[in-house]
Structure formats: C-alpha cells, structure tokens
Amino acid sequence: MKSTSQIRMMAYASLFAALIAAGAFLAIPIGVVPIVLQNLFVFLAGLLLGKRWGLWSVAIYLLTGAVGLPVFAGGAGGIARFAGPTGGYLLGYLPAVWLIGWISENTRKTPSFQVAAMIAGSLVVYACGVSWLKTVTHMSWHKAIVAGCYPFIPGDALKIAAAIPIARALKGIVRK
C-alpha cells in the first residue's frame, strides 16, 4: 500500500461494498412495493469513487457473495446465485459502475451529466439482467422484459432523482 489516499479509497470501496450488500435489506416502503436501496449505492459508488474504486467496491461485493457469505438479497450467498434468475443483474453492476464512474470522471460535474451517467448504468444493468433472465428461464424477450424490467423502472427513476442531491452533499465528505 503506497499512499494515504489509497488506504482511504480502499476503506471507502469496502464501505460501499457493505452498503450495496446492506442495500438489499434496506427498503423504504413507498406505495405497495417497498423500494430497496441496492442500486442507489451502486450509482453512488460510481459517482463518488470513480470508475476504478467503484469497480473495486462492486467486485468485492460480488466476490464476497460468490464465495458464500450471505450478502445477496434474502441473506443468501454462493457462486450458484450467479446462475439464478438474478445473476445477470448482479454481474451487470460491474460494467454499470465502471460506466457511471467513467462518465462522471470525464464530464463536468453537473446534475444533467450525472443523471445521464446513472441512466446509462441502469440500461447496462437491465441489458445484462433481462438477457440472463431470458436465458435461465427460457422465456421470450417480451416476457423477460415484462417480468424483469418494467416493474423496476419507477423505483430506479426515484433512486436516480435521490442520488443527485446525495452525491452533491457527500462530495465534500469523500476525501480522495
């Protein structure tokens, strides 16, 4: 470990990995379906930590779950989770957080670019998740999109809207 900043970023990345894991259990009851905060923390990891450390945080989260520790939704873990219907969404977090980090690092730090980054990240998650859901369950594209995409769009829109003020407020706290 070479510098203070690297130790700090390692601690932040581990914290965000833990937040992503906790996000599967933290739900805010809005309307009929409670909205879990997992995606929100993935978005924030990309926005606040950047592409490199954001990717580390998601990779550590996935690795922790893959080796069996109970960090995935429902308190389960294991490499088998990736073969399940939600495996694509989990793996989709990796390119999504990288993309969000890359866009936020290479553009101006304005809300419009941050929203664009998070929308692009969500699209990547849905692309990976729905195509894997279709493969695992042998559903048609239409059914896979109906079951694995449409119900989550309103919640994701709320999370994107909430992530902007949160990222703005936390930018001063995160010491890179």
């Binding site: 390692m10 914290l15 937040l19 805010i28 809005i30 929100l40």
Partner: peptide
C-alpha cells in the same frame, strides 16, 4: 414525496458511515 424520504434516510446514513470509514483509514 418519495425523493424527500429517500434523501432524508440515505444522507445521514452515508455521512455517518463515511466518517467511520475515515476513522478506520
């Protein structure tokens, strides 16, 4: 307002946990 509720829940949580990560670092 769901965004208000999201923000008011997440912001203090993240501030406190980031301070903990700082202390740990």
């Amino acid at each position: 307002n769901p965004i208000y509720r999201f923000t008011k829940f997440s912001m203090p949580l993240l501030c406190r946990t980031l301070e903990t990560a700082d202390r740990l670092a």
